[in-house]
Amino acid sequence: MDPLSTLWETFFDWDAMREALPEMLTVGLPNTLILAVSAALLGSVLGLLLAVAGISRSRWLRWPARVYTDVFRGLPAAATILLIGVGLAPLGMQVWGPDPYPLGILALSLIATAYIGEIFRSGIQSVEAAQLEGARALGFSWADAMRLVIIPQGIRRVLPAWVNQLIALIKDSSLVYFLGLVASQRELFRIGQDYAATTGNESALLLAGLCYLALTVPLTHVVNWIDRRLRNGRPATASTEEDDDDTASYAATEGDRR
């Protein structure tokens, strides 16, 4: 057999792929999405708290936030997942039993928190000080002004980076296989790997790879789309309302410059 066809069969064995596909879609895909999406949600909530702590005037909030970010951004994801998945296993055992799945989500969330916290912080800090002043001048407290005016604008500005983080989470979710999940908890990568291990053929792993791309490539286009929209503003919503400037109670002399 020539090397080229060997290579072809190693990666493109359609039968091996067909065999792995049902489990890939019914077990692997849902688990990957559960891991990534729940970590993204938890990571966003915690990341927002981290971001606000990071810009706090109190050093007792600022410093821990800084340290947290440095540690969880600086560690390899695999190390964090192992440390938390294994290190907290005895604790998890007492709370929900021997299942490592929640610890996988927790580890992914804690990693995501560090990155999303930095994303949100940069967004919030990019909002002009005049916005805060405008809100405070209306009588809003600092906390209300942040919640209603500053944070919504800041997060909007960094949505592309946030979606990038979701992409990273989808990929990093493959690392929870370290924790030894049961068959029904396996995500895309683990299922591909299991098939590859039993058949000695990498096609199932390649299929897993294609599944990741099917998730991540559209998301990168979502990023680009949001980015464009943020830059150019939303598509003009045709204003059907009459321009009633001229009915104003004083001599309206200004032109309409939309």
Partner: peptide, 28 residues
């Protein structure tokens, strides 16, 4: 009263500077 009843559903960026300032006055 500031002559912008028809702009209620617009975004500030869709208005001229003068219109925006009149909205700011109405807001206050």
């Amino acid at each position: 009263l500031v002559g912008l009843a028809g702009k209620a559903n617009s975004r500030p960026a869709q208005l001229s500077g003068g219109q925006q300032q009149r909205v700011a006055i109405a807001r206050a």
